[in-house]
Simulated scan of single mutants.
Amino acid sequence: MLTVIKHTCLSGRRYSTLVKPQSTQTEALAYVSHSTDPWFNLAFEDWLFRTSSKPSHVLYLYKNSPSVIIGRNQNQWKEIDLKTLNRLNIPFVRRRSGGGTVFHDLGNTNYSVMMPQSVFNRRDNAQLVASALNELSVPAVVNERNDIVVDGYKVSGSAFKLTSSRAYHHGTMLLDSNIKTLSQALKNTNQSMVTKGVSSVRSPVKNIIEWQPHITHDTFVAAVIKKFEEHHKVDKKIIVSDIDENILKEDGGNQIQKLKDELQEWDWHYGQTPEFTNTLSTIIEGTEITAEITAKQGKIIKMNVSGFSEDVGKQFIGKKYAFIQVEDIAASSEMDRSVVEWLIECM
């Protein structure tokens, strides 16, 4: 059982500052985050998953400020346009689950359903959320890929994670998201990179407000909670606990803070990147230059460049891909310096 220390009451719900696993009683619980920090929300989700009792069913709902969320086994240099993200000041976050890349902003609401691994069914979870949309007069259905679609347009992408005893299924819901920014953030024209990571499946998308303009984050959240209650045949309403970053200041909050910090550490953020090879070519001062760069766990492990000093090329080995400065590489000629600058620009 998850015991919640309760303080003030917000809109008839409980405001939580601490949650602790107490027993193995089967129950259904719901949490709504009022933080829009993607690092916090994903850390809290991970913490809930790790600490909730094995038989429990948990619903977690939140929305994030503009950010791109990639799967744990994806290559950010292949999946997204990092230069555009930097220009727009939009971070990317590597989540703990697999699956593809998604865009979050305040017009997108995220849901996460946790349960015992023995009863996990991805389609059932997607159907629960689709039925909440149906209650709001949106003709949503679950397709063969277990995505939620309306009239053939994808409105929700999802992913899942399984352990020996627990599982969760989480996804997005495009209510009134900035589709233009979404397209810019997820556009990547890098055809020269071959990666062992999971590639995203691109689909045409639309916002829910295209069908029902009155739907908001709050109405969607309420509809999903209602369906969650009905699904678990709860006699009395589920206690919905509101949370925000104040829980980090409470006893036990240091565990969530640690998970949040881990998501931002280089070893997870970039070091988790699957092995890849990037092949580049150009002409410098009339000389054709071809480079084949192989990186593993975010660091260069092999560099083959034609028309380039081998001694200079060796200096790239062991360095963090895309984090190299021109002054990090010693070049003895103007030609070598030009090649170094080109390589760094292309990473």
Rank of each mutant, 00 (worst) to 15 (best):
P55Y: 14
H104M: 11
N125E: 12
N304S: 05
V340H: 13
P139M: 10
N146S: 11
S165Q: 15
V205L: 08
L29G: 05
W39F: 15
T216V: 06
K196Y: 05
I215M: 00
M335G: 04
S192D: 13
S11F: 08
R202N: 12
S241R: 01
Q212E: 14
F103E: 00
P38Q: 02
A43P: 11
Y168P: 10
R95T: 06
M347E: 15
E262L: 11
I215Q: 02
Y15W: 14
V305L: 08
A322T: 05
I80E: 10
V221I: 11
L263C: 11
I243T: 06
N125R: 12
A223I: 06
E45Y: 09
Q22W: 03
A295I: 04
G100K: 04
G252V: 05
V141K: 11
K161Q: 12
V312Q: 07
Y62F: 13
N89M: 07
V141E: 15
K187L: 08
T172A: 15
K237C: 04
W211V: 04
V312T: 14
S241W: 01
G157Y: 03
S338I: 02
S53W: 01
G197W: 02
T17W: 01
V155T: 05
K233W: 00
D244Q: 09
Q25I: 14
S112I: 07
G107F: 01
S56Y: 09
T279I: 14
E341A: 13
F103K: 00
P274E: 09
E245K: 15
L85N: 11
G107E: 06
E245N: 06
F323T: 00
N278E: 15
G318N: 03
E275W: 00
N89Y: 08
A291D: 03
S137H: 14
N146T: 05
E341L: 05
N134A: 10
T219Y: 01
H231T: 14
I344H: 07
V68W: 01
V32F: 01
V68Q: 02
G99L: 09
A126I: 02
Y62S: 04
G197C: 02
K226D: 13
G252D: 09
L82S: 09
T36K: 10
R95D: 11
S97G: 08
I293M: 07
P66I: 00
G12T: 03
N146A: 10
V305Y: 11
T24I: 04
V340E: 09
I256D: 11
I209C: 10
F316D: 14
M303E: 03
Q315V: 12
L186K: 01
C9R: 10
I69K: 01
R87W: 06
S164D: 13
V221F: 01
D328A: 05
M173C: 13
T26R: 15
A130G: 09
Q264V: 07
Q325Y: 02
Y60D: 12
F44E: 08
I324G: 07
G307Q: 00
I208D: 02
T216Y: 10
N64Y: 09
N143I: 11
V58S: 07
R14L: 08
L128T: 08
T109Y: 12
I70Y: 04
